[in-house]
């Protein structure tokens, strides 16, 4: 079998395996209601994973996406509800701030890990200032969007497909997408060809901010109330999702469809382990084991690819 194809198919195969295993352990999940319930929380994770993917495309890493999503949920549950114009303004400022971070990282040649790790505390701090203890209320329209019932196919699946396809078209098919990925692949060549690295980084960081905002709002629509700590785990989820979906940390090698599938796999793996009644002490370990198995399989495929 074509190894390149196999490599691209691996995320989808992993998802299918986890899905089938879940169906066997808990047949009740094999229904419209079951899938809807089980995959709902995968939608914000998928959006956060896409945000992380934009950053990874330009060889950086965002360790602040989790607290950022939490901050968005707090703004959504307070400012956006009481004063929509101010709320939208605040979210726009956040996206601009992401762009500024991209510029800072590029201009001062700082390691993105350090900058975003620091920022994660800034986002959390602002979130706690806005909403000192969990509360607030999700705007009605947000709740309505997230609880929409589509006939036949559950909403989370439709949402995942739409997110994957839209980003795929934009990043993998468009000409600007090639430049963006080139910024990760060979920044020097890109600069010599007359493209601005600064501009590319700012745009990619702002896209990450934009998807982070979408993630926070969709999460708020599900939880119906804000909480600064609501998405602390998303940082790791999003990185794992990108890698699980066939992305690489360097070289601009990413796959939007894969990232969405990776996020779904992670969310499902969590449910699967709960259905198996594995003790919580082992759950994180088991989730890590799933990650390692998939990555080991990929390494095996890539190894064969290089040998040829």
């Amino acid at each position: 079998m074509n190894r390149r194809l196999l490599r691209q198919a691996l995320p989808f195969i992993s998802l299918a395996v986890v899905l089938i295993a879940t169906f066997i352990v808990q047949p009740r999940t094999m229904s419209y209601f079951g899938l809807n319930l089980m995959l709902q929380y995968a939608v914000p994770i998928a959006l956060a994973t896409i945000a992380q993917m934009f950053i990874i495309t330009v060889n950086d890493l965002d360790l602040s996406i989790g607290p950022f999503v939490g901050l968005v949920s707090c703004i959504g549950a307070t400012l956006l509800l009481d004063n929509p114009a101010l709320g939208i303004g605040a979210l726009a400022v956040l996206i601009a701030a992401y762009g500024a971070v991209g510029a800072l990282v590029h201009l001062r040649n700082l390691p993105s890990i350090v900058v975003t790790l620091g920022l994660s505390f800034v986002w959390l701090g602002i979130a706690v200032l806005i909403l000192p203890s969990p509360g607030g209320k999700a705007p009605v329209w947000l709740k309505a969007i997230m609880s929409v019932q589509i006939p036949v196919v559950p909403f989370p699946i439709v949402a995942a497909v739409v997110i994957g396809v839209v980003v795929h078209l934009a990043l993998m098919m468009s000409s600007y997408g090639v430049i963006a990925r080139g910024a990760g692949g060979n920044p020097k060549a890109l600069t010599r060809a007359g493209w601005s690295m600064l501009r590319t980084k700012i745009i990619m960081y702002m896209l990450a901010g934009f998807f982070g905002v979408l993630s926070g709002l969709s999460l708020l629509g599900l939880t119906t109330a804000g909480d600064a700590h609501v998405a602390d785990r998303y940082t790791l989820y999003s990185i794992a999702g990108v890698i699980l979906g066939g992305g690489e940390f360097i070289g601009g090698r990413v796959s939007p469809m894969g990232a969405v599938v990776g996020a779904l796999t992670l969310a499902l793996a969590g449910s699967f382990l709960i259905f198996l009644k594995i003790s919580p002490d082992w759950q994180i370990g088991a989730q890590g084991a799933i990650l390692i198995i998939v990555l080991a399989l990929r390494a095996l495929v890539t190894y064969g690819e290089q040998k040829r």
């Binding site: 969990p134 939880t223 119906t224 909480d227």
Partner: peptide, 9 residues
């Protein structure tokens, strides 16, 4: 884990 954020579920 949260008094409000689990209301949806």
């Amino acid at each position: 884990a949260s008094p409000d954020a689990l209301n949806g579920v």
